[in-house]
Amino acid sequence: MYDFDFANPATLDEAVAALGRGDAQALAGGQTYLPALRQRLAAPDTIVSLKRVEGLSDIEATVDTLRIGAMATHARIARETADRFPALSRLAGNIGDMAVRSRGTLGGSLANNDPSACYPAMALATGATIHTNARDIAAEDFFRGMFETALDDGEIITAVTVPVAQAAHYEKFVQRASRFALVGVFAARYPDGARVAVTGASSGGVFRWTEAEERLSDRFEASALDGLTIAPDDMIEDLHATKPYRAHLVSVMTRRAVEHA
């Protein structure tokens, strides 16, 4: 790893200013970024830690939403959303491993937008809103393909507002070495219909499976999905799974998510 300057701001304004100076990179929990630095996949001039920035890790509940600070760790989200939104709690409690969950954060994961990460599926399936230092971005507009998001350079996620579903479940087929999702599906039922988001499968990153949503909006039962498959053409293919295998997993994980919701 090449050396860098280290900024440890205490306020959001200071963090934004530090990120505006040259080739700087924000550091949240670092559970993806530090391994990337060590492999020299990234080599910024400055790293701006967000750990000390005040007010970025609170979790607040309203009548029908959770507002989760971007720096809330997976462990904390797993603990503190268990009563209010068990599907989210379970998702957070199954990310990576125990040590990763102590450090890794919701905001870091969303900003990275790994095509196999869990939170993007949750954000898209719940219709979450991503708040930054500059604006609010609907999840629908936030994810722009593998590792790409709507965030501008130096823009910092501050919190995420998640509408709590009437029923929901996230089903992940674990890739056992990385513990990311080989395929993961978040299915959620809301008064105005069902939403289904898929991670780990598409070369375009997380996506909504609208055909499944239409069927589940009529009837939120696994049998409503009978006969429904997804084309393998745009699936990821790597040493872990072929395109047809991933496409098959999308159907199976969606059924299981609905069954367990």
Binding site: F6, L27, L34, P35, I47, K51, A75, A99, S102, R103
Partner: peptide, 19 residues
């Protein structure tokens, strides 16, 4: 390299010393 930082388990290889 698992240790505890402020009571929580972390991988000491995945955290900067300055943090």
């Amino acid at each position: 390299c698992t240790i505890h930082v402020d009571g929580a388990p972390v991988k000491a290889c995945s955290m900067l010393a300055v943090e």
